[in-house]
Simulated assay, not measured.
Amino acid sequence: MKSRTHLASPLGLALAAVALAAGCNEPAGAPPGGAADKPAQTGASASSAAPLKPGDAAPDVKLTLHDGREVSLSSLQGKQVLVYFYPKDDTPGCTVQAKGLRDGWADLQAAGLEVYGVSTQDAQSHQAFIEKYELPFPLVVDVDGSVSRAFHVPMRNDFATRQSFLIGKDGKIKQVWLEVDPKEHTAAILAAAKS
């Protein structure tokens, strides 16, 4: 009888390594729903908590911003708030997503939305990303992953997966995007905010 150990082929191991390494470095023309867009739970850093859903109370977390300010999420009650998670500053998909929010900023403001981007890079990286693309909204420093964990966002190789949460004026989650198309995200947010 043959041993089953031969089933772990070098090709299978290589594909698993590629899947683990995927972050926000997808090619600029990658289709939505690619490896970097799916919240695949791989490796020891994956979240095992069930995803948050509409109607759930938003976690009362303290957001540490790129400029050192701190904002308690509960202090924003009475406003609609978008908290969006992305893998890494200044990478193709993350840049497309951030620029879309920047370009739709007037409409987002008119809808009364506060926007906070969250990733695990430090304040210096966030500041450079903001300056390079003239982003009009703050970025949250989540080096320890505590904000990601509070929102049950899976981590892949210490990078948050791309997910977004629209919080209503009542402090409850109004809409959740567990898979995000960076190019269409701003339009989807606006539609949900106006509903």
Rank of each mutant, 00 (worst) to 15 (best):
L52G: 06
S148F: 00
A150C: 08
L101V: 02
S75H: 10
D181K: 07
V96P: 10
W177K: 02
P87N: 06
A110I: 00
A19L: 15
G29Y: 08
P27I: 09
G12K: 09
L178G: 14
K183A: 15
V147K: 11
P136I: 05
L73V: 06
Q163H: 05
A50T: 10
I130A: 01
Q109D: 01
R156H: 15
C24V: 00
R156V: 08
G100A: 05
T5S: 14
G78N: 11
M155S: 13
K79Y: 04
P87G: 07
K2W: 06
L178N: 15
K169C: 03
V147Q: 10
D90G: 02
C24N: 13
Y116E: 03
M1T: 13
V143C: 06
A193M: 14
C94F: 00
F137W: 02
S148V: 03
A110P: 01
A111P: 07
A44E: 08
V83D: 05
S72I: 00
P59L: 12
L65S: 03
A36V: 12
A150K: 04
P138W: 04
A30C: 12
P87R: 03
E184S: 11
D107Q: 11
K88Q: 15
N25K: 08
Q97C: 04
S9N: 03
A19I: 07
E134Y: 04
G29A: 12
A46D: 03
K88N: 15
H126I: 07
E114S: 13
L108G: 01
G145S: 15
L82A: 15
G100M: 06
S9H: 05
A188S: 05
A49I: 04
S195H: 09
A50I: 04
L82K: 11
M1L: 10
G12N: 09
S125A: 15
L108C: 04
T91P: 14
S74D: 15
Q77T: 12
A191D: 13
Q80F: 06
G104V: 00
S148E: 08
G55W: 05
V83P: 03
E70W: 06
R4K: 13
L178P: 13
L73N: 04
F137E: 01
D122L: 13
L13F: 04
G68R: 01
L65T: 07
F151T: 07
P182V: 03
S47N: 12
V153N: 07
P138R: 00
G29M: 09
V96D: 14
T42A: 10
T186D: 01
S119C: 15
P39M: 14
I167N: 07
G29I: 03
S119W: 08
G34R: 08
L15M: 11
L76I: 08
P54F: 13
I189W: 10
G117W: 01
A17Y: 03
P138F: 05
A98P: 10
A16E: 08
A21C: 13
G68W: 02
L63Y: 13
L190K: 09
L113P: 02
A35G: 14
A188F: 00
R69Q: 14
M155A: 11
A28R: 11
L135R: 01
N25M: 08
E131V: 10
Q109A: 04
L76N: 05
A128D: 11
P27E: 02
E131T: 14
L139C: 05
K38E: 15
P54Q: 13
P87M: 09
T186W: 03
G33R: 07
W105V: 01
V153W: 08
S45A: 14
D122I: 10
G78L: 11
R4H: 11
W105Y: 07
D60V: 06
Y133D: 12
A160L: 12
